[in-house]
């Protein structure tokens, strides 16, 4: 079996407690090679916490995560994992150009000291073109619109030649046209074999791309299956209050997480 065909993400029994409060309980989640998985849920359902646990940003209280067949704490091929955080974190206190931010995605390929190589520059240029911003390469990130900033963060993940993209709410606060171009971009990437785990509140134009949707409710998996099984137009959580039988509620914190 070639290395590429190992399963990008395999999570079993993931539980996370933040400040002693359980936020995720026994979540199982897989992303297969070339699969586009959407993780849905209302605010506070634990969906962002899941991707943060799966990428090692928050510690798990129990459970296991394997990335490309390697346990998370021993996973060293970091360039295979492309993390796209929420856009609100994009702009820092000092200006930075699109090129500079995307170049920081190449760090996993670079040696500690030394100039960036031609391969780095080529990967950065390709990633920026891929997200449709070749004419903004030298622009400062803060001069771009929200949708464009989102695309820069995706380009940063692409520059590392990531095989699994983990995206936290890329559609939040992005207008419909930009969501359309995001859908087109992600569709092309998935077609080429990139796997995607995407956290969203609503799917919008991304809906037709999704292979499998997982809905979290109060930190537990409430639904797993095709998008068609989701009741309600776009808002995953609508479904929780309408069609489905009531999900077993947690003992603590109910209401806080809705």
């Amino acid at each position: 079996m070639s290395e590429r065909s190992t399963q990008p993400l395999k999570a079993r029994g993931v539980s996370v407690a933040l400040d002693g409060r359980p936020v995720l309980r026994q979540v199982d989640l897989d992303v297969s090679a070339g699969e586009f998985v959407a993780l849905l849920g209302a605010n506070g359902s634990g969906k962002s916490t899941f991707v943060r646990a799966a990428t090692g940003l928050v510690p798990m209280s129990s459970g296991t995560v394997e990335l490309f067949g390697t346990p998370l704490d021993r996973f060293r091929d970091r360039h295979r994992l492309g993390y796209v955080p929420q856009r609100s974190r994009a702009v820092a206190g000092v200006p930075a150009t699109v090129h500079e931010v995307v170049m920081s995605g190449r760090l996993a390929h670079r040696r500690l000291l030394g100039w960036s190589t031609k391969a780095d520059a080529a990967a950065v240029t390709a990633a920026i073109s891929r997200v449709g911003l070749p004419d903004r390469t030298r622009s400062s990130l803060s001069e771009l619109s929200g949708g464009q900033q989102q695309r820069v963060l995706i380009a940063r993940a692409l520059a590392s030649e990531a095989e699994l993209l983990v995206m936290d709410e890329p559609t939040a606060g992005v207008d419909h046209d930009n969501q359309e171009s995001l859908a087109e971009l992600l569709g092309g990437l998935v077609h080429e074999g990139t796997s995607v785990l995407l956290v969203a509140h609503e799917l919008g134009p991304l809906r037709p791309l999704i292979d499998r949707a997982i809905v979290l409710h109060s930190g537990e998996v409430a639904y797993e299956g095709p998008c068609e099984g989701l009741v309600g137009e776009d808002h995953a959580h609508v479904h929780m209050h309408t069609g489905q039988p009531p999900v077993p509620e947690g003992l603590t914190g109910e209401g806080v997480w809705r």
């Binding site: 090692g56 970091r78 993390y83 920081s104 760090l107 996993a108």
Partner: peptide, 9 residues
């Protein structure tokens, strides 16, 4: 972006 850097290893 501290978190992105951390995920990148």
């Amino acid at each position: 972006d501290e978190e992105h850097a951390q995920v990148s290893g």
